[in-house]
Simulated assay, not measured.
Amino acid sequence: MTQMPENVRAGLQALMIEYCYAVDGLKDMQPLLDLFTDDARADFTAIGLPMINGKGEIKTFFDGVFAGMSHHFHFISNFRPESWDGSVGAMTAYVIGMGRANDGNTVTVQVKYRMECIEQDGAWKCRHYTITPMMPMPGSLTEIHGEG
């Protein structure tokens, strides 16, 4: 791995932070979608949620999340550059995510985000996003956000 330049590291870290703010907002979908490439993939299978392909499916998934939740809170830390090849950068971070569904159900997860990103039109965009568990997953996650 070539060492990730500091400006790239800062850009990827900012992207991950903006993702958390966009998800926690639970209102405006556009800032969230702006963080992804058109062909982005979001792999949530390790936490019992779906594989999502493309911005259209990302929007559909998060439309459901936004409609079903009254509160979200994500705390992100331990940013770590994973790879840099001169144009594609990947970074991981630890996340504690909490939420309350409209029906009063709650969820807390401890996970790791991995975002593989490219620069498009002067902004960093995520093209592959993966969530993996760091602690056992609560059943309430699939109850709130799962397919079913």
Results as ranks from 00 to 15, higher is better:
I52E: 04
D85W: 10
D28A: 12
K112G: 10
M16A: 05
F73P: 07
G89M: 08
M1N: 01
A101M: 07
Y19P: 01
K59W: 07
G139H: 12
A40K: 00
T92R: 13
P50G: 07
C126M: 09
D24N: 07
P5G: 09
H128V: 08
D43Q: 04
L15N: 04
V111T: 13
L49D: 02
Q120I: 13
F79Y: 15
P5V: 03
L49Y: 00
E6I: 02
N105R: 15
F61G: 00
G56F: 11
Y94H: 14
N78Q: 14
N7D: 08
T132I: 12
E82W: 05
H145Y: 14
I58A: 06
L32N: 05
T60F: 09
L15S: 03
A101C: 11
R41V: 06
M135W: 11
T142R: 15
N105K: 14
D63M: 15
D121T: 09
F36A: 05
H72E: 12
R41M: 03
G11K: 03
S140C: 10
A14N: 09
Q110V: 14
M134K: 11
A93T: 00
T106R: 15
A123T: 12
M91N: 07
V88I: 15
T60G: 11
M137T: 12
R80E: 14
P5N: 06
L49M: 00
A93L: 05
A40F: 03
V111G: 06
C117D: 05
R41F: 05
F61P: 01
R80S: 13
S70E: 12
Y129T: 07
F73G: 13
L12F: 02
M29Y: 01
D39E: 15
K125V: 13
S83P: 07
T92D: 09
E57P: 00
I118M: 10
Y21T: 09
M135G: 11
T108R: 12
I47C: 01
Q3W: 03
M16Q: 05
M115P: 04
H128A: 14
F66L: 12
F73A: 15
D63E: 15
R114S: 11
A46R: 10
D34P: 05
M69E: 03
I118W: 08
E18H: 00
P133E: 09
E116A: 09
I58F: 11
E119P: 06
C117T: 08
V8Y: 02
I144N: 04
M1P: 02
P133I: 01
A67C: 08
S140H: 01
E143Q: 14
H72W: 09
C20A: 12
T92G: 11
G99A: 15
E147D: 15
V107P: 03
E143S: 13
S77G: 14
M134V: 11
I144G: 04
K59G: 10
G64N: 14
V65K: 13
T2L: 01
L33G: 00
W84C: 07
L33V: 05
M98H: 10
A93K: 02
D85M: 09
T142C: 13
I47D: 03
E18T: 04
M4L: 04
A101H: 07
V23F: 00
L12Y: 00
G25T: 06
P138N: 10
G99D: 07
G99F: 04
